[in-house]
Computed example of a mutant assay.
Amino acid sequence: MGSPPVNEDAMTTEATQAPITRARKLNTDLQDQVAKPYLARALEAVDPSHPNGTEGKDHRNMSVLQQHVAFFDRNNDGIVYPWETFQGFRAIGCDLLTSIGGAILINLVLGYSTQPNIHKCKHGSDSETYDTEGRFEPSKFDAIFSKYGLTHPNALSSEELSTMLKANRNLTDFNGWILSYSEWQLLYKLGKDEKGLLHRETIRGVYDGSLFEQLEKKRASHSKRS
């Protein structure tokens, strides 16, 4: 039995009485670029350039959110202690003050509530690329760029990043505002290119933690040359 016919109105992503839907566009061709983009992935951060996730990365059967955090579990015992958070921040090139502040605040705010379930650290006012169980949502990730990457289809400028953060704010969710702003500003500082652009691949890499591994290797290589 075939699917019932769908008319044009049932598929449109813009409403004339809601101009914001025209300003913040969705990629209507995403299903041709990624298989089942509506399906949240538990193990891999997929996009059109990476339909099977990050090549060569061992997901160890952890959720994408767990993979994001695993870099900071320096001894691989399943628990991220404050000194490990500090070591992880230093490993990716953060300065001493940022590393100390991050270790104290992250473990203080999230340490107790995320034992033993890291998905509880998901906060509001974000892109919703992680679902509430820590899976990776391809359609939500793609919307970051279709909605806000207006000057470069696969990157965000500083101004576009600011626009996205403001647009994602949930009413009265002050904790979410602060957390989202802090996370994205740190990512922008670490990952922007010489033109001040934060590229899609850099952002995708932070979701599954592969960016952290790359930054650590880059920093170690630089230290050896020095």
Rank of each mutant, 00 (worst) to 15 (best):
P5H: 03
A10E: 12
T13C: 02
T16I: 10
I20Q: 14
R22S: 11
Q33R: 12
A35E: 14
K36Y: 10
R41D: 13
P48C: 06
S49Q: 11
D58K: 08
D58A: 12
N61Y: 08
S63A: 02
S63L: 10
H68P: 02
F72W: 09
N76L: 10
D77Q: 04
Y81D: 11
P82T: 01
Q87G: 07
R90M: 14
I92S: 04
I92L: 01
I92Q: 07
L96I: 14
T98Q: 12
G102P: 04
A103E: 03
N107S: 09
Y112T: 15
Q115D: 12
N117L: 04
D126E: 06
Y130G: 04
D142K: 09
D142R: 02
F145M: 04
Y148R: 00
N154C: 01
N154L: 08
S158H: 11
E160P: 06
L165H: 05
A167I: 00
N168R: 11
R169I: 08
I178M: 12
W184K: 06
Q185S: 10
K189E: 13
K192R: 12
E194Y: 04
R200N: 00
V206F: 12
D208F: 07
E213Q: 10
L215C: 02
L215Q: 03
K218E: 12
S221I: 00
S223D: 15
S226Q: 14
S226N: 15
